[in-house]
Design a protein around this nucleic acid. Structure first.
Lengths: 228, 228
DNA sequence: AACTTTTTGGACCCACAAGTCCATAAAGCT
DNA sequence: AGCTTTATGGACTTGTGGGTCCAAAAAGTT
């Protein structure tokens, strides 16, 4: 069951066509017949290249899209070593998802619990993504642009949540305000951290239970980023 | 076509049963037969009380759940007038969604674009939610606990995005870290804002295009909240 | 060229889920 | 009680979508 060049091309065409469909339609709504029509293939081809049927096809599309997600954030994401790069990244994210508008194929799969391995693809993506952000924060700390007191891991996690939520809101309201706001605020917080001060309370990455007691007397200011 | 008390009760039973199902299963996966079984009703009853069929039923469930979302955040959400209340709110949100775990019925509907009016229910919920948060911020500003320079509208939007994203991540990884982190950070930013300082750049709610130029020289510190 | 393997077309099957229909039971009303 | 309206049960229809199958075309191999 080896793949000839021709077969490989066909397979790729199917994946890309499927991805395109999932960008405009929900995962549960796309039918194999849609894919067939969009890729000018026959039923037997779909099952030939994806013996596991729809599930396997969707999983492959998910992998394909997961790579695109990170790729679309380059070159910024890989080089978060200046405030300009951070702003560029923020804009790239906003632009990407504004353009996409409808429903991103991944969140389609995200909740498609019935696809075994789908959750794994998603969480792997989130891990890679978060790690890139964390490295960006560390880089900024090394350059003295971000306070060493900042917990990079936690802030990266917050940024990930912010992106996901911003995109979720965007998808259901068509408005980029929330996405822009949360990223702007979190980045502003990073930027302002360097200006120094007295954190009476230190961030912990591996915090055990809950930080209910957080009496804080540090003085500081917070700036707020904006963009519609 | 008036509803007798008995009929009303049945109708309610269907809505609640449907909501329960949607809490554990995806909207697209739940069948009318599932609802029928779970609510001990017959096919004809479903169509009797919801002539619009599945669509109308889902919409009704969405409305029902939307109310619950806000209700589950009380009494904190309606009374964000102290840092304790904010922390209580944060904990309530985390607890609620951790307990729910699986998929929230709303996000199920959120992307179910084929349900006319569904998007409206969602965005109405988000608006109400965001407004409550905004009022909380204003209250804190009036009490001098939050800097008047903070843009409440924008910060509330960011919190909404944070919650949505945190929950999204939670749903696909089972981890509350992101949710806790983003809320913790945003609230910490609010708390630290009061400590005063010199915002050279002022937040704007109705900002026109993009804030690419945000040279900021304000001095401040940032604290980071944590919680597993 | 003869033969094997891969690729492709599309008819067919099957399960399942939404929605329809009619008959019957149970209220509600006078 | 007698009549009307509402509530309920469940069989039946219908459309659709995933998956199977077989046969033929196109490569690849010697």
């Amino acid at each position: 069951m080896t793949l000839t060049p021709k077969g490989l091309a066909t397979r790729q065409r199917i994946v890309e066509g499927g991805a395109a469909l999932l960008r405009s339609e929900d995962a549960g709504e796309v039918t194999l017949d849609d894919v067939r029509a969009a890729t000018r293939t026959s039923k037997s081809q779909l099952f030939h290249y994806f013996p596991g049927g729809k599930e396997e096809l969707l999983l492959e599309v998910a992998r394909y899209e997961a790579d695109r997600v990170l790729a679309d954030q380059q070159p910024y994401l890989g080089r978060l070593d200046s405030w300009g790069a951070w702003e560029g990244w923020r804009q790239a994210v906003i632009a990407r998802y504004r353009a996409q508008g409808a429903s991103c194929p991944l969140s389609s799969l995200m909740r498609h619990g019935d696809v075994p391995g789908g959750a794994e693809v998603i969480s792997a993506l989130l891990r890679r993504w978060q790690e890139e952000l964390r490295r960006g924060i560390v880089t900024m700390q090394q350059k003295g642009e971000v306070s060493p007191d900042v917990n990079g891991e936690l802030t990266a996690a917050a940024l990930i949540a912010g992106v996901q939520g911003g995109v979720a809101v965007l998808r259901s309201t068509g408005d980029t305000t929330h996405l822009a706001a949360v990223l702007g605020l979190l980045i502003a917080q990073l930027r302002d951290s360097r200006s120094y001060s007295s954190p009476s309370w230190h961030p912990r990455a591996t915090a055990a239970a809950d930080a209910t007691s957080r009496s804080n007397t540090g003085r500081s200011s917070s700036s707020v980023a904006s963009s519609q």
